[in-house]
Simulated assay, not measured.
Amino acid sequence: MGRITTLRPVTRIALGEGVHRRADTLAVEEPLEIRIGGVPLAVTMRTPGHDVELAIGFLVSEGVISERADFRAAIHCGGPGTGGAENTYNVLDTSLAPGVRLPGADEARRFYTTSSCGVCGKASIDAVRTVSHYDVVQDDVEVEAGWIAELPDRLRAEQAAFDKTGGLHAAALFDAVSGELLVIREDVGRHNAVDKVVGWALQEGRLPLRSTVLQVSGRASFELVQKAVMAGIPILSAVSAPSSLAAELAEQTGLTLLGFVRGRSMNVYAHAQRVLIDAATQGEEPVREGQAER
C-alpha cells in the first residue's frame, strides 16, 4: 500500500520571530485508475489507503453495483509504462459478478467524478433518481439535534492523519439508533472519503444504510448528496455549506441535509422532520425570518 503522508522540507516564516527550515508532514495525493476487467473506467486523485473500498463506493454511487454479491475481487496492478511488472498501487482492477454490467455509452447516466464537471443540474438529479436502488424517503429515523451537534467533534477526534497534516477531509458513519461510530475514513478528496465509507459498508453487507448519519468535515456538494442517496443513507450532516444543487437533490430524494453544524447551531436545508428539537435546545431565542445563520 502507498504512503498516506510524506515529509517535505519547508521554509517557515514567523513574523517577528525569524525564518526556519524544517520538515513538514503532507498528505499524499496520487491518482488511482479504477478498472473493471482490465478496462479503464475512471481516474480519481486520492490519498492511498482503502483503495478497494474507494473503488467499491464509487461503483455504488454510480449505480453499477448495489450489494455485496455484485462485487467479486480487486487487485492492484502495474501502471502505464511499467509493462505490468511493477506494482505502483495506483491502478486497481476490479471484477464484478456475472450479469453486472456498466452503463452503455448511449445511456443517460454518466460518471460524475468532480463537482465542477459542468453537467446540467436537472439531468443530474433525474439520473440519480432513476438509478438509485434505495428509497431514503421511506426511512423514518429521527435524531436529536443535540446529538447531531456532537458529531463534528466526534469526527475530528478520530482524524489521525489530519492531526499530522492538516490537509485531509474525513467522513464518518454513525448509527442513528445506538449512536455508535461505525467507520471513519480520511482522504484529500471529500468524495473519496465518502466512497471509502460506502465501500466499507458494502463489504460488510450493510447496504442500504438505513438509520444512519453521514458526517463530513467540509461542505456538502451535489456529489456527496448523490453518494449518500445511492447508499441509502437518510441523513447527511456537514460542518460547512451545501451547494444549491445539493439542497435541491436532497429535497427531491428525501434526504435530510444539514449544514453549518458547528457548536450548538445548525441549518437544516431539507427534510427537517427527522431532526428533533431536544431539551438542550429549548428556551433559546427563536430564529428570525431572513438570512440563515452561519
Rank of each mutant, 00 (worst) to 15 (best):
H76Q: 01
S66W: 11
G49V: 03
G49K: 08
C77Q: 13
G49T: 04
D70P: 03
T47N: 04
S124L: 14
R3A: 14
C120I: 04
F71T: 05
Y89A: 13
S116Q: 13
G37F: 12
M45C: 07
T25A: 13
G16F: 06
A105Y: 08
T5N: 10
S66Q: 10
C120Y: 03
V60W: 12
Y112N: 11
E53C: 09
G38Q: 02
E30R: 15
G2L: 12
G79P: 05
A69P: 04
P9Q: 07
A27L: 04
S61K: 09
R12T: 10
D106L: 09
V28E: 14
T25C: 12
I36T: 03
R35T: 00
P98H: 13
H133Y: 08
A23K: 07
G99D: 06
G18Y: 11
C77N: 03
T114L: 01
F111W: 14
T11P: 01
V28H: 05
G63H: 10
H20G: 02
N90R: 15
H133F: 12
R21I: 15
E86Y: 11
V19K: 04
I13M: 03
C77T: 14
G38F: 05
M1Y: 11
E30L: 14
H133M: 07
L96W: 03
I75C: 06
H50I: 00
G63M: 03
G78I: 07
L32K: 00
S124M: 11
S124H: 11
T82H: 06
F111D: 07
R22H: 06
A23V: 02
Y89H: 15
C120N: 14
T88L: 08
G49H: 04
T114F: 01
V52S: 05
L26W: 15
I75R: 15
P103H: 12
I65R: 02
E33C: 10
R35A: 00
T113H: 01
L59P: 04
G18M: 08
H133A: 15
A55C: 10
G84V: 03
L15Q: 09
R22F: 01
G16Y: 13
H76K: 03
E29L: 08
T47G: 05
L26F: 15
N90V: 00
G84Q: 04
V43T: 14
G104Q: 07
L15G: 03
